Amino acid sequence: MRIPSCHMEIEQIFLQLEQQDSRSICITSTNSGEGVSSLAQALTERHLLAGYRTLLVDLNLQNPSLIPLSLIPSDTDVAETNSHYLTFSQHNSVVLSGLAVPTNKAEIVELRQPKNLKKRIDTWLKEFDKVIIDASSVSQLNTNNIPAQTIAGCCESTLMVILSGQTLQTEFKDALEKLEHHNANIIGHVFNDKYQPSLKNEICREIQRLSFLPKKISTRLIAIVQRNRFLSTVV
């Protein structure tokens, strides 16, 4: 799912990051599938629009989203290039300045060491104003991945994505403890309301359940609720 970089929610997150003056940003979640990659790409686009040289680094080995542009088939609309920092988002079909997940086993093992990862981030920051890292979820801790808590501990700021109505409170607390144990600077939590019905939809559903109302009246009430601008902004 692509999140437009012009969305008000993205703007609010961008402004908060501006206040923190964060140059390296880790985005993670408790479990996989909570929307980390979508948020990371939207924030990368927003920083690019602001004039920042921004690098999106894909370190989510369990669910990679970026492909090196040189690996894109020649029959696509993407122009050929030798640039080391151009990648193609297979989820959103956009070209971004980024780095795809490492495929070399030795490099993965190297980046699992905090001091090595920190040096790599510092190297990227010599060429870019901002580095945004798409990390795996905290719960995905295995030998084939780079732990999210390691990445968070090496970045100046960390954002956590929470899938409303799906992420368990106990899981979230456990993830927070792991991140804090690695000295992660958690500056905010972003709630993904993909499965969380809006207030407007809840009201419409309740109106439909009022069986004693004539069909004509219930249809009219639902239409009024659907047109209400205020209810469209309330979750």
Rank of each mutant, 00 (worst) to 15 (best):
R53Q: 14
H181F: 12
D174V: 04
L66G: 04
T167W: 07
S211M: 02
I224K: 14
T170R: 13
I146R: 03
L163A: 10
T150H: 02
H189F: 15
Y85F: 14
L231G: 05
A148H: 02
P114N: 08
N201I: 06
R112N: 01
Q90D: 02
L96W: 03
I162P: 01
P64M: 07
T30K: 07
Q140S: 14
R205Y: 14
N60C: 10
K200M: 15
H91S: 12
R53A: 12
N116Q: 13
N82R: 12
Q19Y: 09
A100P: 02
L86C: 03
S136E: 04
D122Y: 05
V109D: 04
H189T: 15
N63C: 10
R112P: 00
H181R: 15
L39M: 09
L125T: 10
E177A: 13
L86T: 10
S37F: 06
P197M: 07
C6S: 14
L210W: 12
S97R: 12
T81S: 15
T44V: 00
T54P: 01
T28L: 06
S136A: 14
I3D: 03
L86A: 04
D134R: 09
K200Q: 15
T44Q: 00
K115V: 09
C26M: 06
I224H: 05
I187K: 11
N192V: 04
T143A: 13
V234E: 06
E110H: 13
N144V: 08
S32P: 08
Q12D: 10
I67M: 12
I10R: 03
G98E: 00
I13A: 06
Q62S: 13
D129V: 04
T143I: 14
L69Q: 04
D134N: 15
F172A: 14
H181D: 08
A50F: 03
Q196Y: 15
M8N: 14
S136Y: 00
I67L: 14
E110Y: 07
C155M: 02
E80A: 12
H84S: 09
I3T: 05
D75R: 13
N31A: 09
A223C: 06
